[in-house]
Design a binder for these strands. Structure first.
Length: 891
RNA sequence: GGGUGGUUAGCUCAGCUGGUUAGAGCACCUGCUUUACACGCAGGGGGUCAUAGGUUCGAAUCCUAUACCGCCUACCA
């Protein structure tokens, strides 16, 4: 931190976010402003929150996502929609169970020791604690969630939705139980769906192992990346088209070490070009081998225990961990001459998305959902544009996955979650029910003898119902009727498959219609080095820490400003200074305007157009241009662009120009009434426009402003959203003002470069080309006199250059600042030289263009006209500057 | 291996349908206790727009390759 920064902290005039934010949020809660009314006549606008996991508190990714949702909700609330933002949390089966199990181990216990009921009770307590923390964080961020509708995937209502859906799919034949190869995490000791497996590239080896042909001295060599699986080999396979190996098909080889006899089969899966052209077949530990095994009726030998150690089928290797076994096995193979060679090999190993251990393909009984039929309407929805992705390119990712969808393994060998609602009789007959079936439900069987499936359902099996289960489906339809489908789902790209796609399928299958019309995919939050923020890397930033230091408004606006539309934001702690400074700026300018209002009563809602000067009209024009642009950007989900537009308007147009322009020449003079009205009106619009982005400072200031003028105030939350009005936009007038700004800037530049003390006033001579512009300057000099420290202004079409003066030549005006005794000739000369060189370069470019006959022949007329005008302008300015330069040299 | 996003100032990014003196914020340099704001004001320096071709009167912008960075996806042992 620099010295300057240290000093700033002590300054007392700055905006104090913390106290204001806490107070305001509590008021919003007390008045129940966030609560949605399902009987309202207003048009609905609803969003369901992507439920955060109860395993950990929120990070900046959540802060970004929830800011986006709150911006959309608050804007639409102001636009008169009945808004419902449904908050909630997700029980996160595997992740939560893993954490609680670790706690138990640390205490010297295990889940099996304390038993299922105790374990669930304990996990529940822990999850509830975290859930509360998460909801508290959302509040601190200013989220205007409808807390009366807070949902949780393990709530009774949501649980009954899960049961309902399970039964529905089972009856339809879409849910089935199968003996299949699944992804098995040896650490979490559960199956995983394909989407819960992450692929990580790693350096591996390809081991070449030879298998001896029975009754011959010949060998067949296979290549493998997982040699330990050979303990479960039940065949070798070759391509049926491969002439090299045709003669061996049907023969037998001896599996090294275990000395088991296994046969050689021909299967078209084998690629003769790869490796040796011979593949070892381990049906119980490889999905492809499993298929080959089924085709050739091979034995399926499971060699692993659920913890990844070798079981009794591994003979003497029994009890070894998988990679220890690999080591010993390779050693023995080498000793016995079976290891032909070893090559380096890049592979991408599947790892568990929760614990990052390498996943084993594992043969077990699991429940699956058949997906192909469910996918159809979900594909159509995106293809037809009924559901739109923002940015649009994500729809390709979605469609690619949907069109290649595979069955979904939904059973998990866990205790934490929705227990599979299936009961088995001794003979294997199944009954679907959450609770023990009644005698009527299982005719012919004694309910007491039925045993419930031990496993629980994948967490996503409850979260895919989120857009309607949170609204009371299937038991209560009032909210469903009022708020389904929701409008937009805002989330990160990493759960397009896990969650978004499945919600779309669920929406069509269970409720009969799409769950949302828009999917907004925001970027992934990264640290200052571009590394994804994560708890395990420890590079995350706690939003609460940022809120404490800078305020929630600053957190929100900083995040949105620094998240490029459709790209990943790179954030560091000082990213948030941008927002804090901006909030303070708004606070300061509001303070100023209110101070100047005093006991006057400007109209905040209407403009009296009879009492406007050019600057007033200009800021109104800029305001409405801004409104036009911001509204468009938000509608297109370009929130960062919207925020930047607001930022630039407020800081540059309003604070740096307009407010400075209307400041009277002397401190004790009053602001012209018409301008003060405009300032108050524009400020009010700014506050409303900014409210979705920075809810607290705008609420606070809005109330102050209204109290001051009207003696009372309502909340800004339901204030009328500022819509653009094109009749305020005046391009010509904006151009005129840009000319005035150019004069001001030129004078400032001259003074600054010549090191004129800011306190020193001077006269100003301007020779204008156009009489009207001269009038404009003359009539409004009072407004910008203080901006350029001008004493007397001399303006006209024939104004002469004072002898000793610095000059600046801009389009349409020659500017002279008489500064006898203050001008350093060398500095002024260098300055003019630089300017002239600059202009000459530009002139050169334009001249070349205009000398090209093809350009003149082909370019549209307005372009050539523009270029000609430019050329003239450059020439004129260069001439004048040269003259000025000569004159200086003559001094 | 397929798909997809990126490459513009020291850093993070704008620049949407080709014609701009290529912009902003941060950082940097200079000056400033100027009537709200030093979390500020004014001014300044800094870019052969990844590379190579092409289309065009004209390319940061369109097309084609190449390189690098990133993400997603994939059962080639």
């Amino acid at each position: 931190m620099s010295k300057q920064n240290e000093n700033k902290e002590i300054k007392s005039g700055a905006y104090q976010a913390a106290e204001i934010e806490a107070k305001i949020y509590q008021e919003w809660l007390d008045k129940k402003y966030f609560t949605a009314d399902n009987t309202s006549d207003k048009k609905p606008y609803s969003i369901v929150i992507p439920p955060p996991n109860v395993t950990s508190v929120l990070h900046l990714g959540h802060a970004l996502n929830n800011t986006i949702q709150d911006i959309l909700i608050r804007k639409h609330r102001m636009q008169g929609f009945e808004t419902a933002w449904i908050p909630g949390a997700d029980h996160a089966g595997i992740a939560t169970q893993v954490i609680v199990e670790k706690q138990l181990v640390a205490e010297g216990s295990t889940r099996r020791e304390i038993g299922r009921d105790k374990f669930i009770e304990r996990t529940q307590g822990w999850a509830d604690l975290n859930k509360d923390k998460i909801l508290h964080q959302l509040e601190k961020m200013g989220s205007s969630c409808d807390w009366s509708r807070t949902a949780y995937t393990l709530d009774d209502g949501l649980t009954s939705a899960v049961e309902h859906v399970f039964k529905h799919l089972y009856d339809k034949g879409y849910i089935y139980r199968g003996h299949r190869i699944v992804n098995w995490c040896i650490s979490c000791q559960t199956s995983l769906s394909d989407d819960e497996v992450e692929h990580e590239d790693s350096k591996g080896k390809l081991w070449y192992i030879r298998y001896k042909l029975k009754g011959s001295d010949e060998y067949l060599t296979v290549a493998t990346t997982r040699p330990e699986t050979m303990l479960g080999d039940t065949a070798l396979a070759v391509s049926p088209k491969d002439s090299r190996f045709k003669k061996y098909v049907g023969k037998t080889v001896i599996l090294p070490i275990l000395e088991r006899e296994i046969k050689i089969v021909a299967d078209s899966y084998v690629d003769p070009e790869f490796g040796t052209g011979v593949v070892k077949v381990t049906p119980a530990h490889d999905p492809n081998d499993f298929e080959i095994g089924r085709r050739h009726d091979l034995e399926e030998i499971n060699i692993l225990n659920i913890d990844g150690s070798i079981n009794e089928n591994g003979g003497k290797f029994k009890g070894l961990k998988r990679y220890d076994c690999r080591k010993q096995l390779l050693k023995e193979l080498e000793e016995k001459g079976h290891l032909v060679k070893t090559e380096d090999y890049d592979l991408s190993a599947g790892t568990c998305y929760r614990c990052h251990n390498i996943v084993e393909p594992y043969l077990s009984d699991q429940w699956f959902v058949k997906m192909s039929e469910l996918a159809k309407p979900a594909i159509d929805a995106v293809k037809s544009g009924e559901i739109k992705f923002h940015p649009d390119y994500w729809s390709k990712t979605y469609l690619h996955w949907m069109e290649n969808i595979r069955d979904w393994c939904i059973s998990r060998q866990l205790w934490w979650g929705h227990r599979i609602p299936v009961w088995y009789a001794e003979d294997g007959t199944m009954f679907i029910s959450v609770n023990r079936p009644s005698a009527d439900d299982c005719k012919g069987y004694d309910p007491e003898t039925l045993v419930q499936d031990e496993d629980v359902l994948d967490t996503w099996f409850s979260s895919w119902l989120w857009p309607f289960s949170t609204l009371g489906w299937p038991n209560n339809d009032a909210d469903v009727k009022a708020f389904y489908p929701t409008k937009v789902l805002s989330t990160g790209s990493e759960i397009i498959f896990l969650w978004v796609a499945r919600m779309v399928m669920a929406g069509y299958e269970f409720v009969g219609g799409l769950p949302f019309t828009d999917v907004y995919i925001h970027g992934t939050v990264r640290d200052a080095n571009g590394v994804k923020m994560s708890k395990s890397l420890g590079n995350g930033i706690d939003p609460l820490e940022i809120i404490e230091k800078y305020g929630a408004d600053a957190l929100r606006i900083s995040m949105v400003l620094s998240t490029p539309d459709g790209q990943d934001p790179w954030l560091s702690k000082n990213t948030f200074e941008v927002g804090r400074n901006f909030i303070n700026k708004v606070h300061q300018v509001s303070k100023f305007v209110m101070m100047r209002i005093g006991d006057k009563k400007p109209n905040l809602h209407e403009i009296n157009s009879d009492d406007l000067v050019i600057f007033d009209k200009w800021i109104l024009s800029r305001l409405h241009r801004t409104l036009e642009s911001v509204n468009k950007s938000i509608d297109e989900y370009r929130l960062s662009t919207a925020a930047k537009t607001v930022y630039n308007f407020v800081w540059n147009d309003f604070c740096s120009w307009y407010v400075e322009l209307i400041k009277p020449d002397k401190a004790d003079e009053e602001i012209r009434e018409g301008s003060l009205n405009v300032a108050a009106y524009v400020l009010n619009q700014i506050l409303k426009l900014m409210h979705p982005f920075t809810p607290f400072v705008t609420e606070n200031t809005y109330r102050d402003l209204h109290n001051l003028i009207e003696g009372s105030s309502e909340t800004i939350m339901f204030a009328k959203w500022p819509e653009p009005d094109a009749s305020f936009i005046d391009e010509k007038l904006e151009e005129s003002l840009e000319q005035i700004q150019a004069v001001v800037t030129a004078v400032r530049m001259v003074r600054s470069e010549l090191n004129v003390p800011p306190s020193k006033k001077s006269d100003l001579y301007i020779k204008v080309k156009d009489e009207a512009f001269g009038q404009l300057l003359e009539n409004h000099i009072g407004y910008f006199r203080s901006l350029i420290k001008v004493e007397n202004l001399f303006v006209g079409t024939d104004t002469k250059k004072p002898l000793v003066s610095a000059s600046a030549i801009i389009s349409g005006a020659d500017i002279y600042v008489p500064l006898a005794g203050l001008i350093d000739i060398e500095v002024e000369k260098a300055r003019l030289d630089k300017e002239i060189t600059n202009l000459k370069n530009q002139l050169e470019k334009v001249s070349r263009k205009l000398a090209n006959p093809d350009f003149l022949a082909n370019a549209p007329e307005d372009v050539t006209k523009k270029e000609r005008a430019k050329k003239e302008d450059y020439q004129e300015r260069i001439e004048k500057m040269n003259k000025n330069l000569e004159q200086i040299l003559g001094w």
